[in-house]
Nucleic acid binder design. Structure first.
Lengths: 250, 250
DNA sequence: CGAGGCTTTGAACGGTGTCAAAAACTGTGG
DNA sequence: CCACAGTTTTTGACACCGTTCAAAGCCTCG
């Protein structure tokens, strides 16, 4: 995929640039028709906009087409935990349509383009297109798997391992959707965001990143992260490379 | 529900004692027929048996009918993170059937009875019973929500809050399936299990529990936990009571 | 009664958090 | 092109929460 080609207004699903990425499983014509018919429209936002909010039911589900976002929860005294970053191709808002209210919020980091599906028609999808219903469950299972691994990280990895794990995780996901060029990826978030994802303080996150830098494992400057070699990072973080990465795109 | 009534051999789904719990949403006759037809059999295990193993694909999905179990992941040096406890009515193994391999293991804490569904017929379910397909996704979304909250706990709550949160969480889930009597619930696991769930060391977990005890918030002795009052625990843990609790049962 | 597993306690260490301030960077307006 | 304000990164000092190590007590069960 050419990550730089911006989405025009009113992209038709069959021409969706994201589908060109090889991580996304092929869809049949029927499925594509169904998806097209389901699409309610596009949501274009600036950076730092709240797309979904904890405690609020949402009338729409979204697939992020372009840009970055993150899911998070907060404690009432302001402590924030980022539960995951959202990259192009990721599906958000299932919580809202299944459980009623969103259990977390979603905020954009960059200007973003989201493809929206009306919540009311999800049920229709389950009745009329079982393969896509299966895909939704598949995506939920994948998200669960990502959360499990993150939980292992927060609970049992120390700061250095945890940071190494997380950066590698983001790097690989970004690579999947064509956002990595020669080992370089734009990370459009601050160290504070990373700290909130790792469950560490900002200061300690900074020192941890410095350590990874000093060891030559990463270089993170001016919003760009360079990973010279994936292998040593994976070893430090005990990251299981070699997991299958293809997935459905709705 | 009468939690003490043991399951006889070859329980028929319509007579499944679990269904009597009011947390579980009513099913139509059609759905019940479908579930019955899908059921491959029952798995009865002793305590400490591995039901599903990380990295291995599973031919079956299970609903836990009776007993306790837990999901966990490990790092290769032995550090273990318990990602969740499994109580009666919980559905396990979606990862395996969706993603191919299990991303975590599941081990029983007590003798257990599990209702098993062949993985191969999940697809059939999606094609022929969309309401149950929806329920599976619903359960996956709920699990995701539980993991999100746990992530917030590990990342942003301190040891006391985190323990308070988790015990309350378990207490309420146990209550849902009739395992609580007059504020008392059997916790069939050791403090080491709890430590592995909270991401704390065993020693510190013990001291944290002592603190909760000293403050009169809980009493945990000989495998029984007594919660005199839910409210102060919820306040300490910033636990959102008042979330809807009913869910489907497969 | 003995053995093994679990819980409890104390002491010392160290990883991470907090506080405070400087330095570097970004974007804006002149 | 520069000056300035606000944000983000970086650094150092210090406190504290949670870990580790070690050992004692306590249960359970054969």
């Amino acid at each position: 995929m050419q990550a730089d080609i911006p989405f025009g207004y009113g992209v038709q699903c069959p021409q969706c640039p994201l589908r060109a990425c090889e991580v996304f499983q092929a869809v049949s014509d029927d499925e594509l028709d169904f998806i097209s018919a389901l699409k309610a429209g596009e949501l274009r936002t600036g950076p730092a906009s709240t797309v979904l909010q904890e405690g609020v039911p949402s009338d729409h589900l979204f697939t992020l087409l372009e840009g970055w976002a993150f899911r998070y929860k907060t404690l009432d005294d302001g402590r924030r935990q980022i539960t995951s970053f959202v990259l192009p191709g990721d599906f958000i808002g299932i919580q809202g349509s299944m459980l009623g209210d969103m259990d977390h919020s979603v905020e954009t980091l960059t200007p973003a383009v989201l493809c929206s599906f009306p919540r009311k028609r999800v049920w229709e999808l389950y009745q009329n297109c079982s393969s896509l219903a299966f895909d939704i469950t598949w995506l939920a299972a994948r998200q669960e798997s990502i959360l499990n691994e993150h939980l292992l990280s927060l609970g049992r990895r120390n700061a250095v391992e945890c940071a190494a794990y997380y950066i590698l995780h983001l790097y690989l996901r970004a690579d999947d959707v064509g956002l990595v060029t020669e080992g370089r990826v734009r990370f459009p978030f601050t160290q504070e965001h990373l700290a909130d994802a790792l469950g560490l303080s900002l200061v300690h996150t900074n020192k941890t990143l410095k350590k990874l830098s000093a060891d030559g494992l990463i270089q993170w400057e001016h919003g760009w992260c360079f990973v010279p070699d994936v292998a040593p990072l994976a070893e430090l973080a005990r990251f299981d490379l070699g997991q299958p990465r293809t997935r459905p795109l709705l």
